[in-house]
């Protein structure tokens, strides 16, 4: 296999307790820590391992967003990606347009595999990989917890609700990854220095011929209905009687 594309989305760090702005216009992102979507780090780790085993020659990380996403791409380069592409746009991009962007890059690069996170932890949509596979007319192996390559095929084990499902797919294909696929490596300082010299291309969204939309538009944001802290019991007897009071046991 020649090239693997990996998507890296810049999102609010998973440790941040996200707050809805008081006017309902969005969530607070000012001064909030931003990171690579955790699933995308796992996607990149998998691509790097495939390359390190000699089953691919190049790993390219791709992000769609503002110039700030260069930070996440640099981190990806420091992890070990060979080069990076930033598709620049100041507008939030919908999932289908995101998939179209990836399809354009796939065509330009002649990629054999695209590995993405199974969802982004900001909009929790879980759509882009499946949509890319659809418009590319290629297999999708979503929610992967194991990927075994075998020439121009791959066996992928998927986390489904009743257990684990294994499918076989022909390459090229799209894989979206679940948390248990691997544990991403830590970036070391010398790698950060090296990453500064690796190529990072910037392509304006317009150059790819993708016009965003029609999107599913956000109209209003609200905090979730909060659950209230209830009672504290002192011991098992107290717990049993509280459960009995509610008719639960």
């Amino acid at each position: 296999m020649d090239k693997i594309l990996v998507g890296l989305k810049r999102v609010v760090d998973y440790n941040v307790r996200v707050q809805v702005k008081s006017d309902g216009s969005g969530v607070e992102t000012d001064g909030v820590k931003m990171s690579i979507n955790p699933f995308d780090e796992i996607a990149l780790e998998e691509a790097l391992r495939i390359r390190e085993r000699g089953d691919a020659s190049e790993v390219i990380v791709v992000s769609i967003g503002t110039a700030e996403a260069q930070q996440q791409l640099r981190t990806g380069l420091a992890m070990g990606a060979d080069r990076a592409i930033l598709v620049e746009t100041s507008d939030a991009i919908d999932a289908l347009s995101g998939a179209r962007v990836f399809k354009e890059i796939v065509d330009r690069e002649g990629a054999d595999m695209v590995i993405l996170g199974k969802q982004a932890i900001d909009d929790d949509n879980s759509q882009t990989g499946q949509m890319l596979a659809a418009i590319w007319g290629r297999p999708q192996a979503t929610f992967a917890s194991e990927v075994v390559l075998d020439g121009d095929k791959a066996k992928v084990t998927r986390e489904v609700d009743v257990g684990l499902e294994t499918i076989e797919i022909d390459l090229p294909a799209v894989i979206t990854v679940d948390l248990r696929l691997n544990e991403p490596r830590y970036v070391k300082l010398p790698d950060i220095m090296k990453a500064k010299k690796k190529p990072l291309d910037q392509i304006p969204l317009g150059d790819l011929g993708v016009t965003p939309g029609p999107a599913v538009n956000a109209v209003e944001f609200a905090p979730p209905e909060a659950r209230q802290r209830g009672i504290t019991v002192d011991d098992v007897a107290g717990l049993v009687s509280a459960l009995k009071d509610k008719g639960l046991v």
Binding site: V12, D124, N125, P223
Partner: peptide, 29 residues
């Protein structure tokens, strides 16, 4: 595009859904 994880229907094309691991509920159209 898909509307993911509908929690409630608010109109013919309006829905509520959770984002940010349920830390925000967004009405989408």
């Amino acid at each position: 595009n898909q509307v993911s994880d509908i929690m409630s229907v608010e109109g013919s094309h309006k829905f509520k859904r959770p984002i940010y691991a349920g830390n925000a509920i967004v009405t989408v159209e």
